[in-house]
């Protein structure tokens, strides 16, 4: 694999807890300017992988011998970057992050500016402008004055995306950004990701919905039991021979009449 390639390259990532391997020698290739979907059944290690890639969970050295894990982005070793510098390159959108505190949407988005300014400084006009740009890009401009606690699930997800965008990341990792959202909100979220990719950002999103992945992703990585079982373009991963053993269901792949992308249909095996 060429290491000078633009985008995210992770190799030999392992992580375990209590002697149990959650991730076993995982490799991920996510090109810049594309949306890479991270698929897999519940407990396959998608969230853990995102957290390890984001550097918020240390990659354990479970492999006893051989070279350790590497995570490079645009040729730079992500794990060697100082935290704050890393937070200017990479943003993570967690699942279900919430707060009990009374916080306006604008203030929540401004949190994304923390890595960009001195810890003693307040919000500058540039920070506020960046926050508003991020809100607009996430389609949440009109929510700016609302309180985070009063938002619907879809609105809150847009705010979390805006907070990540305020970091001005070149790599964005999202953990099931469409979870608990209605279909319009799901499509909206994926549209935002497509726009980001069009701007050259490297997007990696863990997804549950295979059809959503089929309709929006460029590349897919399929995890099962902490291992990568398939990776590549959508048309190569979303095929019955790959999916059926992983999910234990029967899969039929149709073709979308307008987009030409795969549409999946499932039966109990």
């Amino acid at each position: 694999m060429p290491t000078t390639q633009r985008g995210l390259t992770a190799e030999r990532v392992s992580w375990g807890i209590d002697g149990q391997l959650i991730l076993d020698d995982v490799g991920v290739l996510a090109p810049a300017g594309a949306v890479t979907g991270l698929l897999g059944p519940n407990g396959s290690g998608k969230s853990t992988l995102l957290r390890v890639l984001a550097g918020v969970q240390q990659a354990g050295r479970q492999a006893a011998s051989g070279p350790g894990p590497t995570t490079t982005f645009d040729g730079a070793d992500l794990r060697a970057l100082p935290r704050r510098e890393r937070a200017r390159v990479l943003a993570l959108v967690e699942q279900d992050a919430g707060t009990d505190l009374p916080l306006t949407v604008l203030d929540a988005v401004l949190l994304g500016r923390i890595p960009h300014r001195s810890l003693l400084a307040g919000d500058s006009d540039a920070d506020r402008a960046a926050a508003h740009t991020a809100l607009a890009a996430a389609g949440a401009q009109e929510l700016a004055d609302r309180e985070v606690g009063t938002l619907s699930g879809g609105e809150r997800q847009r705010v979390h995306m805006a907070r990540a965008l305020a970091q001005r990341p070149r790599l964005i990792l999202l953990d099931e950004p469409t979870n608990h959202l209605d279909i319009a909100a799901q499509l909206h979220a994926m549209r935002v990701l497509r726009d980001l990719a069009a701007d050259g950002v490297t997007v990696v999103a863990a997804l549950h919905d295979l059809n959503l992945a089929a309709s929006t992703c460029d590349h897919l990585v399929l995890l099962d039991g902490g291992r990568v079982v398939a990776a590549g373009p959508v048309g190569e991963v979303l095929v019955p021979a790959v999916l059926e053993p992983v999910y234990g269901v029967r899969v039929d792949v149709l073709t979308h009449p307008r987009t030409g992308r795969p549409v999946l249909s499932f039966d109990r095996g």
């Binding site: 918020v56 935290r83 937070a87 707060t99 923390i114 890595p115």
Partner: peptide
């Protein structure tokens, strides 16, 4: 401020 959305969010903001 960085802790507002929890430990992981704080870590992701470089804290």
């Amino acid at each position: 401020d960085a802790f507002t959305f929890g430990d992981t969010a704080a870590a992701a903001l470089g804290v």
